[in-house]
């Protein structure tokens, strides 16, 4: 589904990624672990088109992403839930979630479903789809329903992370990229978020998960990649990595 082949990328004179290869197949949860500064976030930014690869290719469902502008990538069914949440602080919870559905109107207009629809019918369909998907998010994160009228910036860190995941869900992604969803959160909330990731995956969403919390990530994922200073140094089944002495030593604190 997603393929990185020999991708190098960086900022200015600094090369962060050095010819990395990575693949995510449809239906999988793949995790990318590694220390701070290993290049995990840069990998996600390169996939999303914020950083352009200097060499190599990023393809999504066979399509080369080199020429796709960053704001078009979400329309292909690929969305990132960024590190540090990046919610819209002065929009309400509901408006934040609706931003996740921002591209739907023109997508529906172009799709075979929407082609024949008139203005009123189109708006009706958008509205009912939106209500249905909002209900789905609220079912997974009931606290967001209680806070729907509150400004995003007033939520707690855990609630903001739920909002960020909910907002990403509203884009109806085929592939969800998650950057450090557990960062700075209480264990109970991390567990809640990881449960939701598992649920989403069972419902057919493919996941690429970047995590500092390597143990939890490897337990959840099917496969894993280990990154060190811009290179992929190991890749295997998650259970194999979990048992690997070097991984245990370096990332699991044993």
């Amino acid at each position: 589904m997603l393929k990185l082949e020999g991708v190098s990328a960086g900022y200015g004179a600094i090369e962060v990624l050095k010819k990395i290869d990575l693949e995510v197949r449809a239906g999988e949860i793949v995790t990318l672990i590694g220390a701070n500064g290993a290049g995990k976030t840069t990998t996600l930014m390169t996939i999303c088109g914020f950083v352009k690869p200097r060499t190599g290719r990023v393809t999504f469902e066979g399509r080369d992403l080199a020429t796709v502008p960053a704001h078009e990538i979400v329309r292909l069914g690929l969305v990132q839930c960024p590190e540090g949440r990046k919610i819209f602080p002065r929009l309400t919870v509901l408006e934040n979630l609706e931003m996740g559905a921002f591209t739907r109107e023109d997508q529906l207009r172009r799709s075979p479903d929407g082609k024949g629809l008139g203005g009123a019918a189109l708006r009706h369909k958008l509205r009912t789809d939106l209500e249905r998907d909002l209900a789905e998010v609220f079912e997974l994160f009931p606290i967001l329903a209680d806070r729907r009228g509150q400004a995003g910036g007033t939520l707690s860190g855990g609630e903001q992370q739920m909002l960020a995941v909910g907002r990403a869900m509203m884009t109806k992604p085929k592939l969800l990229l998650l950057d450090e969803p557990s960062l700075g959160l209480a264990p109970l909330i991390v567990k809640r978020i990881f449960d939701v990731i598992e649920t989403l995956n069972r419902e057919g969403v493919t996941v690429l998960l970047v995590e500092q919390n390597a143990r939890m990530a490897l337990k959840l994922a099917h496969r894993g990649y280990v990154m060190e200073t811009g290179e992929v140094t190991m890749t295997d089944e998650a259970s194999v990595l979990l048992a690997d002495a070097r991984v245990r030593d370096a990332y699991l604190g044993e």
Partner: peptide, 24 residues
């Protein structure tokens, strides 16, 4: 309007706005 929504989102967080498909 959609443009207004896009403007408010971009003002608050341009990177997130772009992730949501807004042509910043």
């Amino acid at each position: 309007t959609r443009l207004g929504k896009a403007m408010r989102a971009t003002a608050q967080n341009p990177a997130a706005a772009r992730l949501m498909g807004i042509d910043v």
